[in-house]
């Protein structure tokens, strides 16, 4: 009888809480969301055990226990090669969304990822890969993605930049819990870095604008050490 009201009330409450947590985490890292996945692979405990680092995002915005590689969509990479999310299957991968014309957040986001890579030893680095998916497919064709590779001096052996149909891009965002909205020529978006394991399971999510790269570096190391 009152189920609708209940659902709505819960939704409102969830929305309020989720957004408080997210915005706090982004703006002043007030708290580490300790949300746990409903079942299956837990997030790496190191992220939760170090609340002082405060760069890890909650897990409630995504499905945690299912490989994201269930999404079989074919995208195009910077060299216009047909590419699926699972291209680096078998290895840990950092996945993030960005766009080429992004003025501030994306340089920080990409810088964050490069810092994580730089923190690794050479043998570690050789086994970590990065997928960057554009949220601006209308403007970011493979040529634009190639320009991003050059501008940020991204190692083509480590990085794949993907573009695709707008519809397909929104599915990637849905899976990664990335929100975005076009506004006055720019795109507002959440800057999330997702660490997935060799099977494509999400192991941790980080605020790509956070100052500290230590939690992500430590989690990547832990994941690499398991193999």
């Amino acid at each position: 009888m009152t189920r609708r009201r209940l659902v709505l009330a819960l939704s409102l409450a969830t929305a309020a809480l989720a957004d408080c947590q997210r915005h706090d985490a982004e703006s002043h890292s007030a708290a580490v969301a300790s949300a746990k996945p409903r079942s299956g692979a837990p997030l790496l405990p190191s992220s939760v055990l170090n609340p002082a680092e405060q760069a890890t995002l909650g897990a409630s915005e995504i499905v945690n226990d299912v490989p994201i590689y269930a999404l079989k969509t074919t995208f195009l990479d910077q060299d216009a090669r047909p590419t699926k999310l699972e291209v680096f299957q078998g290895h840990p991968v950092l996945v993030a969304m960005f766009y080429a014309a992004c003025p501030q957040a994306c340089p920080r986001l990409i810088g964050h990822i490069k810092d994580i890579l730089a923190n690794l030893s050479e043998p570690e680095r050789a086994r970590l890969f990065v997928l960057l998916v554009t949220i601006d497919p209308e403007n970011d064709d493979p040529a634009a993605l190639r320009a991003v590779m050059t501008r940020y001096a991204l190692d083509p052996a480590r990085f794949r930049l993907l573009t695709g149909k707008e519809d397909d891009i929104r599915e990637v965002a849905a899976i990664l819990g990335v929100k975005y909205r076009t506004s006055a020529g720019t795109i507002n978006h959440s800057s999330v870095i997702t660490l997935v394991d060799g099977e494509g399971r999400v192991r941790a999510r980080y605020d790509g604008l956070a100052d500290s790269k230590d939690p992500a570096t430590r989690d990547v190391r832990a994941l690499l050490a398991k193999r």
Binding site: A174, K179, R181
Partner: peptide, 27 residues
Amino acid sequence: VLDFNSTLVSSDARENGDKDKLRFCGA
């Protein structure tokens, strides 16, 4: 709706920093 996941995102404008009202709960 197609873009159900488009609302209440934070702004890209880092210069606005923490004063950006869209970043805050209740904004």
